[in-house]
Design a protein around this nucleic acid. Structure first.
Lengths: 170, 170
DNA sequence: GAAGATTGAGAGCTCAATCTTT
DNA sequence: AAAGATTGAGCTCTCAATCTTC
């Protein structure tokens, strides 16, 4: 870790703006959703994923990956949504290890009543401030960054990140 | 909330990519930092803010705002860093309500040993995949989005977000 | 043994209440 | 009464361990 240059001014500004913006955004969207629909952003995300899935149902692991939530978290979130009648959960016939979550009628209705306010909120907070022309390009760039993190995740074997300052925490 | 159009394909792709990318990024940077320096991303952020402040010290509220952390969280984070000898905390003479956190020598050293690996990690995971030419433009756009959320935060009085689907949770 | 899913324990974070000083 | 800061309670989330089925 000898010759590492600090971030350039542009890089630092971009990084800071990105993190700050997304932090505020997540918090704000969560509040908007809770107020307008009684759903957290995670819960909304799960209902939306299910509504887009074939037969409105989805295996737990697949759902977790689609909604960007860990399997253990998904387990508790789905149980909670089930307790509130918005999804049902049943074992799969073909693989006795697995479960599917399925959107109930109440879940469909809740999502239908929730999405217009949510979309309006997203528009107002994000897309009203952005140039539509750059969206497609930016989405590609962001996806490629995300993709490299999902695969090469660990970084343990990469000299660029393993060496650092000593002491292993946790 | 009558005539709300769904997101366009570009908008949805952008939004999804943005959220996914930042979620992975935060998690990854946290892991890299914990492994290489024994610091969480929040803790690193606090040390970095202090190192850039005049006299390497900063009031709690200001520090919280600079590091994008709530005041109550900052209170506990600083106490924890103090217990580990990386900052010290003392009352302000001019305002007996306030406290300042100040980077200790050990804190400076820890930060110095931590940043090269962290910067390398940020570079490798983000900037190696992005076109430098768009950074300045993108940073401006992101900042403007973030800015509107920090002020007009609530949205309570805005018809676009208040009406939604019923039921107030929490 | 590996994969799907859940659970217990504990860390991270936020909200509302509190205490002190202004 | 408002501002700075902290605290208690409770929710969110993750890690590692577990149980079952493949």
């Amino acid at each position: 870790m000898a010759g590492v240059a600090p971030l350039t001014a542009d890089e630092a500004a971009f990084f800071r703006a990105l993190m700050e913006m997304v932090a505020s955004l997540r918090q704000q969207l969560d509040l908007d959703l809770i107020r307008s629909a009684g759903l957290t952003a995670n819960e909304y995300s799960i209902l939306r994923c299910l509504s887009e899935a074939s037969n409105r149902e989805c295996r737990m692991a697949e759902l977790a990956s689609a909604a960007c939530v860990s399997p253990s978290r998904m387990s508790r979130l789905v149980d909670d949504l089930r307790d509130r009648g918005l999804v049902e959960k049943r074992p799969i016939s073909t693989d006795r290890r697995g479960y599917v979550a399925k959107l109930t009628t109440a879940g469909v209705e809740r999502l239908n009543s929730a999405w217009p306010a949510h979309i309006a909120s997203v528009r107002r907070r994000v897309f009203d401030h952005l140039d539509p022309a750059i969206l497609a390009i930016a989405a590609d760039a962001l996806s490629s960054v995300a993709a490299t993190m999902k695969e090469g995740a660990s970084g343990l074997t990469d000299p660029a990140c393993a060496g650092g300052g000593g002491r292993i925490a946790r």
